[in-house]
Write a protein that binds this DNA or RNA. Structure first.
Lengths: 302, 302
DNA sequence: TTCCATTCGTGCAGATTACGCACGAGTTCA
DNA sequence: TGAACTCGTGCGTAATCTGCACGAATGGAA
């Protein structure tokens, strides 16, 4: 009758399978099997009725699990809140962000974070997929685009803006386009995810109306960093967030084609958002990471 | 953050010492120390402030323990109730009774109980001391005398009555007393606990008034079974519950001196009582033991 | 004051437990 | 029918826990 035992039993009920729980907890299915068997031995009746391939809670099992579920959660919450009150924040912080954000924004400031909060263990899931915060036990996520909807708390980290860039070599070879409209006839390196249309948006400085330009070209890549590499190598024109091209523009390895235009892939009002599961309290480890990120990027526009 | 850990922490708060908890849980004090240290490591702050010899919860510790206390109890209760609902009762049943009751009444029927409920482990504390049911974690107690007072549930097992007996050898040597009053001049083997007066009570059959006889003699023993042995050996006259002398009377190894009188040590309205801690539910293992005892002794008068 | 008993903490060796892997029986889906 | 998956069980290893011994510190008794 240990807490971990009860938690696995609850997970089994929720996921409906020993194997699924095993994958989630990163241990062998046999362990889950044994844990449940032991708990059943302890309470004296079967919690789950299992045929070789399907699984369902028994009547008594259902009752028992319903009873202990809230209690276990409360106990967990009590522990979390206690940890939150600890003078120095600690624990494991699971966060996710796009590969490019991790590479370009997170990595440079991580050493400072580790120095400031040595007792926080970081687990960073760099992924361009929109993971399920709850299912994967993620404490904090960074998402780009329009303000996300859903059952979590959203906080704006910074506004993002895009630039249309190309390498000087490429421009020398093909000439520099005078107006965004000319991009239709150029090689535009495009992002290969649904929603990232092949229509690029532009809005002249001071103007209120935007116009879109259909773009095409030989290259479609599903990774922003690779798109930047392709642009650097003179493979074409790319639409990239300032975040990724700031340094290239300063060094001259990439050139901003339309400094007088605001550019966007889909919508102009995009930003970087911080997402975290809605709970009655916010663990201190998450709080300090949010503050840390805002301290570095909160005032900037990238 | 396991349940056992939390329970230990709560016990430490309640008992105010690692060593005391260690004794209660029957493990080494160092283990308790390590468990608490680990929990403190986990929540990130000190739960108890300890000088080498004294111990007190810290502020945060107090808060945390107050929070988890009821939760842990609830979870325990949920487990107990689940076990109670198990089809076949199981678990460890701790019970206490006087040495003589255990010897004479419990032992003869135990094999049958074990056969009927093989999954119940029995722990029998044979003791003439009135143990603290709660502190010693006792599920069921058998007590003799007048109806006990206190914060527990009391259920009458059977009425008890006493007989004044002596061995035929003794009677042959000294002559058989014709009336209880003559006992004052005899060797009466007396019980050596406070409250068990040296005044024996008598009431003639059909009479309403009782009278008492002051008794004396060379032998005072603190154990009912030893008193019976002494009586068998002809050391004198003894006042013993029927429970203990039934077989001797049948076999003739002891004789009932006053079959026409009701006898008592202190009060006539004594009985054997079953006591169990008052809880909202009654574990099945306790329930079946109560039923089992009543099945064997409930209708009898001993 | 001195001595003794008792407190909690830690290092160390042994024992208990938990874990993953391999394998088997049985079921679902293609 | 076979491939892929389910849960359960041995088995050997690895991690964990436990008890003992010892030390430092404290409070009460003589």
């Amino acid at each position: 009758m240990e807490l971990s035992t009860l938690k696995t039993a609850l997970l089994v009920r929720d996921l409906g399978s020993f194997a699924a729980v095993a994958r989630l907890l990163e241990l062998d299915a046999s362990s889950v099997s044994r844990v449940i068997a032991q708990l059943e031995q302890d309470v004296g009746f079967r919690l789950f009725q299992r045929s070789t391939r399907s699984l369902a809670p028994t009547g008594e099992g259902e009752l028992y699990l319903n009873r202990i579920g809230p209690l276990v959660e409360e106990l967990e919450a009590a522990g979390d809140e206690a940890r939150m009150n600890a003078v120095s924040p600690r624990g494991t912080l699971r966060m996710t962000a796009s590969i490019s954000f991790v590479q370009e924004c997170l990595m440079p400031i991580l050493p400072e974070f580790r120095t400031r909060y040595p007792e926080i263990d970081l687990e960073i899931l760099a992924s361009d997929a929109n993971l399920d915060l709850r299912a994967d036990g993620i404490d904090l996520a960074v998402r780009f685009g329009q303000m996300p909807q859903g059952d979590w708390i959203v906080s704006k980290l910074m506004t993002t803006s895009y630039r249309v860039v190309a390498s000087p070599v490429y421009l020398e070879r093909t000439g520099r386009p005078a107006h965004p409209g000319e991009l239709s006839e150029r090689d535009c390196i495009r992002f290969a995810i649904p929603g990232f249309k092949t229509l690029w948006q532009f809005r002249e400085k001071g103007a209120t109306d935007a116009f879109s330009v259909p773009v095409g070209g030989a290259t479609v890549i599903s990774n922003a960093l690779s798109i930047r590499s392709a642009a650097r190598l003179g493979m074409g024109v790319a639409l990239l967030p300032i975040m990724l091209v700031q340094r290239d523009l300063e060094r001259g390895t990439l050139a901003d084609l339309f400094p007088d235009h605001a550019c966007a892939a889909a919508s102009f009002d995009t930003a970087a958002w911080l997402l975290y599961p809605s709970r009655s309290y916010l663990p201190r480890k998450v709080r300090v990471m949010i503050d840390f990120l805002k301290e570095h990027y909160g005032r900037s526009e990238v």
